[in-house]
Amino acid sequence: MSLTIKTLGRGRRVAAGSLIAVTALTLSACQNGTDSASSQSSSAAAPATSSASRAQGAPSTGGSPQSAGNAARPSSVAKPSAGTSGVPSASQANPSAMTASDRCTAENMSLRLGRTDVGAGNIRVPLVFTNKGKKACSLRGYPGVSLIQRDGSAVGTPASREGGAGGSVRLQPGQSAHAVLHTVNDGVSDIPCWKDSQIVFVYPPGSKESMTTNSGGLRVCGGTFTVTAMEAGVPS
């Protein structure tokens, strides 16, 4: 009788030990399963978080929400350099002295004939341009010159160019420059003189706007009618 009791007691101890072992394995498996799922979930979520951070302008290495917000502010965006689309270059934001905007035009000048110089059969008359504007401007090259009558009809042909092109003449407000009209006296050549003119019709160098002044009865003879390039000042 006592033997049976001992056997049963041992069997209960074995069964109890087996139950403890099974329970431990089950708990271990559950714990391992949870850890594995958590690890897989974390690794799967990491790329999405990184992509979202990059899309928002945050550093790919992560960081606090405050640092991510700072990275996404407009002030962190690099400004376009000069010369790119929509940004002017240094040469576009600052024109040179020879640009059209700096050239003396008919609008900001006055025009007159200077004192006639007669000698050795030649007649030379200064064509004087004066800067009447409020800022400095430049003239360079030859003016276009024709003689006309009061009704607008042309007298002869436009003046041809004489001498070199010269350099740029800078005129401060009130300053003058001149070109010289040249013809010859009647009788110097067998070529007949043109009719008397009443008006000198002029295009300043580089301009498409005309100016006029009284010709003082200037008459071209000998088929000679020329104009020089601009020079500074006015002949005395």
Rank of each mutant, 00 (worst) to 15 (best):
N214K: 12
V200M: 10
V234Y: 02
S236A: 11
M1C: 04
V77H: 13
K208R: 12
V128S: 01
V125M: 03
S76N: 15
M211N: 03
S168I: 15
T213P: 02
S18M: 12
T130K: 09
A93V: 13
R10E: 12
S153C: 02
I148Y: 10
A232K: 14
H178R: 09
S110Y: 03
F129S: 01
A78T: 15
F201Q: 13
T99N: 07
R10W: 08
T49M: 07
M211K: 13
A52M: 07
I191L: 13
G141E: 14
C137F: 00
C104W: 10
A154G: 06
R112M: 06
V184M: 07
H178M: 05
A179C: 08
S81H: 06
L8H: 08
L3W: 03
R170S: 14
T228W: 02
P158G: 04
L3Y: 00
S189V: 01
F129V: 02
I148P: 06
R161A: 05
L111G: 02
K135R: 15
D190S: 13
S91T: 15
Q149P: 00
I199N: 01
T34A: 12
H178W: 02
N185P: 00
R13V: 06
A45Y: 10
A100F: 05
S89I: 00
G233E: 02
I191E: 10
T61V: 09
A37G: 05
S110P: 08
T213N: 01
S75N: 14
A16K: 11
A78D: 11
G11Y: 10
S28C: 09
A120W: 07
C193Q: 05
V155N: 06
G164F: 04
V188K: 14
T228M: 05
G217L: 06
S168H: 09
P88D: 10
V77Q: 10
D117F: 03
V77K: 14
Q56N: 07
A16F: 08
Q66R: 14
I199Q: 03
S41D: 11
M211T: 00
